[in-house]
Every structure is written in C-alpha cells, then in structure tokens.
Amino acid sequence: MKQHLICKRIADEAVAALIEEVQLTPKPGLVDTENNGAHNDLSISKMQNSAHSLHNTFYQMAMLSFNRQPTVEIREQFGAIGRNGEKEMFAVTENSNTHKGAIWSIGLLCSAIARRQGEVLFPQVFTDAAELANLPDQYIPKSKTNGSKVKENYGIPGAREEAQQAFPHIQKYSLPTFLQAAQIMSLREAKLSALLVLIVNLNDTCLLHRGGLDGLMFAKREAKKLLSNFSISNLKKLDDMYIKRWLSPGGSADLLAATLFVINISGIMKRGVQHGKVELHVSSKSFDY
C-alpha cells in the first residue's frame, strides 16, 4: 500500500509537470495556449492527451525502482516500460512525437525518487537518475531517430547523454534560474526564464534537426538577448521569429518539464497522500548551489 501510494503520487506529479509545461505561455516555437508554435501536427489538446496517457508509464517506472538499487535487469525493464509508453503516446497523438524525450528524462527521475521511497534530495535525485541511465540495455532499438541522426551529423550529445551526466543543464541552469527568478518575478515569468536559459545553454537537438547549426545559433542568440531584456511582449516577438524559421526547442521544453517536476515534487513537505499517511520528504538545505 505504501509503495502504491508513493508511486502514484510520483506519477501524478510527472503528468502535472508535462501539463504545466505545455500550458506555460508564451513559449518560443512551442505549443502553448496561444498557438501551436512551429508545429503543424501538434495542438495543446494533443499534448495534454499525451501527458495523461503516460501516467501508467511513470507509475510502472516508479514501482519498478521502489527501494531497489539499479541493476542491468532493472535498466532493461525500465527501457521496456518506456517503449511501451511511447506506443501508448503515439496511439493518442496519431503518431506525433509529443513526449518521447520526456518519457526518458522524467521517467528516470521518477525511478530515482522511488528508489529513495519518495525522498527527494538534491543533487542526489539527479545522480541516482544518472546511475540508472548509464547501465546498458541490450534491447534498445537499432533504428535511427532524429536525435541520433543529429548526434551522428554534428557530434552533439542529446537527451540520453544529458541524463547520463546527471542533468547538468537542469542543475546548472534551469533549476537555479527558476529559484532566483521566483524571488523577483511572477512564477510564470520565472518558468519562462528557466526555459530561455535552457535554450541559450543547451545544444538542443530539436533545433539542430529543424534548422541546422545556423538555426541553433540563431535560437540561442535571440534567447540570450531576451534574457537581458525580458518581457512578455518581447517573448511573443521571439515566438514569431522562431515560428517563421520553423524552429522548436523541444529538448529545452523536455528539460523544463523535468525541472518543474522536481521543483513541485520536492515541495511536497509533510503533505499526506490522500487516503494514507505516506509523506514525500525534501531537505530544504539541498537547494544550496
């Protein structure tokens, strides 16, 4: 019962983070409440349906890792759950890739938190996720993805390596940026600032796939300008520029969702799970960067 309650709460928060990310508006080149960004196959309803379809995937990943040390067997089972989750995602999105990267990144964080029975510590949660990510999975499909093609063409690491390195862009950029910005801005603006700092610092494979090196550099340069002169009106102008160039920072969006997930779930202090007495704990001192 304890395991089920904790893992259900983890999955609840994972889905909520995906919904929170897509509803955040305005985002440059990304689906939000105002437009579909640089996408003709996506919409906010499709993104939300996709997020809800992944609840069982995140729950299973958490259940798998609950109070268990990572092993190759667990890594292979984790991969199988993720690939089944992708199939469920594609079934509700008419084969559009809405959250493939998020299944990997947020799924690993779900497993890391479940490993500690719901305890969230920083940076432990990221290093735990990396430990699982670095184990081999002999069943990974050999077929090439957009991300693997970009890695091959440009020699730039993607979502897999980000996790294997303990999410350095979350630890160094999006998480501290959000925490600092939230002291002087609205929560909405703090989230948008965290997204922008990811775009500036991440070699986003989605941007590379769509715009090549020129597109990536353009996206980074314009996002950096906006960070130094932040306003919602300027952000809407950046959205127009990205859409015109068909640029979408999907990798940055996935990491933003992962950032929101750990922020939200670590904020659950002494809050009992409904119909139970289980609590998720966080060390407040852990945010000392």
Results as ranks from 00 to 15, higher is better:
271 R>F: 06
238 L>F: 05
96 S>G: 02
161 E>T: 13
147 G>L: 02
287 F>V: 13
255 L>Q: 13
239 D>Q: 14
172 K>R: 13
107 G>W: 01
21 E>V: 08
113 I>S: 12
167 F>I: 04
128 D>M: 00
195 L>V: 08
6 I>W: 03
239 D>N: 15
272 G>T: 14
212 G>F: 11
233 S>E: 15
241 M>E: 15
250 G>S: 09
278 V>W: 10
236 K>R: 15
190 A>Y: 07
238 L>Q: 11
113 I>M: 12
184 I>S: 09
118 G>A: 10
285 K>N: 12
211 G>P: 01
180 Q>D: 12
263 I>W: 03
123 P>F: 03
126 F>D: 13
35 N>C: 15
257 A>R: 02
23 Q>P: 00
3 Q>K: 15
228 S>Q: 15
91 A>D: 08
238 L>A: 06
66 F>K: 04
141 P>A: 12
288 D>E: 13
80 A>F: 10
222 E>S: 06
109 L>T: 05
255 L>N: 08
110 C>W: 08
172 K>T: 11
24 L>N: 11
59 Y>L: 15
27 K>N: 06
190 A>I: 06
60 Q>A: 01
196 L>S: 07
221 R>F: 02
14 A>Y: 09
227 L>W: 08
215 G>K: 06
27 K>A: 08
251 G>A: 11
44 I>Y: 07
203 N>A: 13
43 S>V: 06
274 Q>W: 08
140 I>L: 12
148 S>D: 03
156 I>G: 05
29 G>A: 10
247 L>C: 03
179 L>A: 03
43 S>T: 15
61 M>Y: 00
1 M>F: 07
